[in-house]
Design a protein around this nucleic acid. Structure first.
Length: 593
DNA sequence: AAAAAAC
C-alpha cells in the first residue's frame, strides 16, 4: 500500500510543529524545500548561511505539494538562485542534431525491453507492492518533469520495487548492480521525502558557525562514482529546491566547503573525505533522515568498514529507525549481512537479477594469449575496432589491467604507436583522472586503460569493447568489468586475454560464460576440467542469478508463521520466468528454490 | 598481490 501524503503529514506532524513553533527569531531558520522560494519576503536574520533561504509567512504547509499556486517549479527555486541547468549539455547536443554518437534520444535512454525478463524477489514483513509506471507513484510535478527530461519512460525493476518500499518509509537492503537504475531508485524517495518535509530537523542547529546539516547522505566507494551520483541527483532535483553537494578526496577541499556552506540537503561523499569533514565539524549528521550506501560490498572490499561504521555509528547520526536506510550491494556475503543487521531496521530485502552485465547483449570472447604477445594482439583488436567507428570517431574501447604501473606502461606504448589512449588509476591526480574520463567519454581519446578503479558502477555510454588485457583473479570483478559495455540495452563486446597465469579463473569463467549462453572455447573447457579439484573455491557467490539472498530466510531470523515472506513477483512479467533475459540456460530454475 | 581512499 502506498502511503499517502496525508498519512505522512499526520505521522510527522508533532515533529514539524515542534520544529517550527519554537523558532527563536534571531536564529538561522531552516526552511524545507517545499516552503522555499515563496515570494520575496526574504529574511536577513542569518549571516552564517548565505544565501539566506526565504522564510515564508504562509504557514499553510499542508497544501499538497506540487500544487501550482506556489509555483516552486519556477527557475529561481531553492537555496541557490544560480542553479545551473544540469540538462544543458544534453539540450545543446540535441540542438546540434544529436549527440556525438548520432543518437536521437540523448545519452540516457534505456532500452526497457531488455528489462522485461529480469527476475525480482522481495522478502520481509508487509512488503509494499511494486508499481508499473512512474505515474502510479506520487512523486510530484517537479520530479515528474525531471523524469521526463531524463527520458525515463518506465521504471526499471529496482525502481518498480524499491521506490514504493522507500516511499512507504521502510528500510531497504537491495542486491542490484549499477546499470539497473539504482541511483534513481534511492534518489527519488529521498528527494520526494525532503520535499514533503520529512527531512525537517527535530531541533534547530546549534549556533555553531559553519556546520552544515544535510538531511540525506549517500556514500559510495570511488570518487568518480560519487561524481556520477551527484550529476544524476542534480538532474533529478533540478528546480525542486533540493540541493545536492558532492565531497570527495583528491580535490581542493575549500571549494567543496564553499558549496556546502551554500546549503546542502543531500550530501554525496566518499568515506575518507566525509570523515575529514566530520572531524572538522563542518558537517553534522544529526539531521540525517536518509542514508544510502552504494556498492556496499565494494566499500568493504576496499577496507572502508571502519570508516563506514564510524560515520554511521560513532558520529551524531540518528540510529536505525530514526532514519531511513538503503543499503545497495551486488552481493550479500556475511559482512554485508552484519552491516545490514546493524544499520537497518526491519528492512525489506530486494534482489534484482543482474542487468546489462551478464546478458546476451554482451558477446564474450576469451583468447589464449601469452604475456609477450598481448600488446601486438591488442593492436590487432584496436585496428579492427577502428573500422567500426561511428561518424568518424573510433568506437570506445576500455582496456583493463591489474596494476597502476601496468596501466601507465600500456598507455605510453599505445600512444607511441599512435593509438589515442589515456589512463585512469589511483596514482594519477584527481584532475588527471577526471580529465581522462571526460576525454574518453567524449571520444577524444577513444581508448582508456584502467585499473579496477573503473570496474564498478561507472556508467560510460557507448563503450563498444571491453578488453581484459589482464584478467582479474575474482570472477565477480570480471563481471563488473565487462558490465561497462552492453549498457542500457545496447550491445557490447568483451574480449579477455587468458594464459597460464589465469588458471584459477578457468573454471568460474567457463561456467559463467556457459550460463550466459556464450561460446566457450574447447581449450578453456579442458582447462576448466583440469582445475576441477579446485572445488569451486572461486565459484560465484550464492550461485545463480542474484547476488545474494535474504539470510533471514534461513532459520535464525525466521519467525515461522505464514505471511512473513511476501514475494513480489505476483505482478506479471518479473520473477516468473525460468530463463534469464535469454542469458542463463534452462538448467537454472530459481535461486530461491 | 593489487586496487581504492583524507590531509
Amino acid at each position: 500500500m502506498q502511503t499517502s501524503w496525508a498519512d505522512l503529514a499526520t505521522n510527522s506532524a508533532p515533529e514539524i510543529a515542534g520544529a517550527s513553533n519554537t523558532t527563536a527569531p534571531s536564529r538561522p531558520v531552516y526552511v524545507p524545500p517545499h516552503l522555499r522560494n515563496r515570494g520575496a519576503s526574504a529574511s536577513t536574520e542569518s549571516s552564517s548561511a548565505p544565501p539566506p533561504p526565504n522564510v515564508s509567512t504562509d504557514n499553510n504547509a499542508g497544501s499538497r505539494w506540487g500544487a501550482p499556486r506556489n509555483g516552486w517549479g519556477n527557475r529561481s527555486g531553492g537555496w541557490d538562485r544560480r542553479e545551473v541547468n544540469p540538462f544543458e549539455d544534453q539540450e545543446n547536443a540535441a540542438e546540434e542534431g544529436g549527440a556525438a554518437f548520432g543518437e536521437e534520444q540523448g545519452n540516457t535512454g534505456i532500452n526497457f525491453d531488455a528489462y522485461e525478463d529480469i527476475p525480482v524477489e522481495t522478502s520481509g514483513e508487509n512488503v509494499p507492492p511494486p508499481v508499473n509506471t512512474f505515474a502510479e507513484i506520487d512523486l510530484g510535478e517537479a520530479l515528474n518533469q525531471n523524469i521526463r527530461r531524463c527520458k525515463y519512460v518506465k521504471p526499471t525493476p529496482v525502481q518498480r520495487y524499491g521506490i514504493p518500499i522507500s516511499l512507504g518509509g521502510r528500510d531497504l537492503m537491495a542486491c542490484a548492480q549499477t546499470g539497473s537504475g539504482k541511483t534513481a531508485a534511492f534518489c527519488f524517495p529521498i528527494i520526494s521525502g525532503i520535499m514533503r518535509g520529512q527531512g525537517q530537523p527535530l531541533q534547530r542547529p546549534p549556533r555553531g558557525a559553519r556546520t552544515v546539516y544535510p538531511l540525506a547522505l549517500v556514500l559510495s566507494p570511488t570518487r568518480e562514482l560519487s561524481m556520477q551520483i551527484h550529476e544524476e541527483a542534480r538532474k533529478f532535483s533540478y528546480q525542486t529546491g533540493v540541493r545536492v553537494v558532492v565531497a570527495y578526496g583528491g580535490a581542493p577541499i575549500n571549494q567543496q566547503l564553499r558549496e556546502l556552506e551554500r546549503g546542502v540537503d543531500i550530501l554525496v561523499a566518499t568515506p575518507g573525505r566525509l570523515v575529514d569533514l566530520l572531524e572538522r565539524a563542518r558537517v553534522s549528521l544529526q539531521m540525517i533522515k536518509y542514508l544510502a550506501l552504494d556498492e556496499a560490498d565494494r566499500m568493504l572490499d576496499m577496507g572502508f568498514e571502519p570508516q563506514i561504521r564510524k560515520i554511521v555509528q560513532q558520529m551524531d547520526m540518528p540510529p536505525p529507525g530514526a532514519r531511513q536506510t538503503m543499503l545497495f550491494s551486488a552481493t550479500f556475503p556475511k559482512e554485508i549481512q552484519s552491516l545490514a543487521s546493524d544499520f537497518l531496521s526491519n528492512y525489506v530485502f530486494l534482489a534484482v537479477g543482474r542487468v546489462g552485465s551478464i546478458t546476451d547483449l554482451i558477446v564474450q570472447r576469451v583468447e589464449y594469449v601469452q604475456e609477450s604477445d598481448k600488446r601486438s594482439h591488442l593492436m590487432d583488436l584496436l585496428h579492427a575496432q577502428r573500422e567500426n567507428g561511428v561518424q568518424g570517431k573510433q568506437a570506445l574501447t576500455l582496456v583493463f589491467v591489474e596494476t597502476k604501473k601496468g596501466a601507465d606502461a600500456l598507455e605510453h606504448w599505445l600512444c607511441r604507436n599512435n593509438f589515442p589512449a589515456t589512463t585512469i588509476h589511483g596514482d594519477r591526480t584527481q584532475q588527471e583522472r577526471e580529465l581522462a574520463l571526460r576525454s574518453f567519454k567524449t571520444g577524444n581519446t577513444p581508448i582508456l586503460v584502467a585499473t579496477d578503479v573503473a570496474a564498478r558502477g561507472l556508467d560510460i555510454p557507448h563503450v563498444a569493447h571491453v578488453v581484459n588485457f589482464e584478467l582479474p583473479n575474482d570472477v565477480d570483478d570480471y563481471v563488473h568489468r565487462i558490465g561497462r559495455t552492453g549498457r542500457a540495452g545496447k550491445k557490447g563486446l568483451a574480449t579477455a586475454f587468458f594464459n597460464d597465469n589465469n588458471a584459477s579463473l578457468a573454471r568460474p569463467l567457463a561456467d559463467l560464460m556457459q550460463e550466459a549462453n556464450q561460446e566457450v572455447p574447447d581449450w578453456l573447457s579442458r582447462y576448466a576440467a583440469r582445475s576441477t579439484f579446485g572445488g569451486g573455491r572461486n565459484r560465484r557467490n550464492g550461485g545463480g542469478r542474484f547476488g545474494g539472498r535474504d539470510f533471514r530466510r534461513e532459520g535464525s531470523f525466521s519467525r515461522g508463521g505464514s505471511g512473513y515472506y511476501s514475494t513480489g513477483n505476483n505482478s506479471g512479467g518479473y520473477g516468473t520466468s525460468g530463463g534469464y533475459g535469454g542469458g542463463f540456460g534452462p538448467g537454472v530454475t530459481s535461486a530461491w528454490d
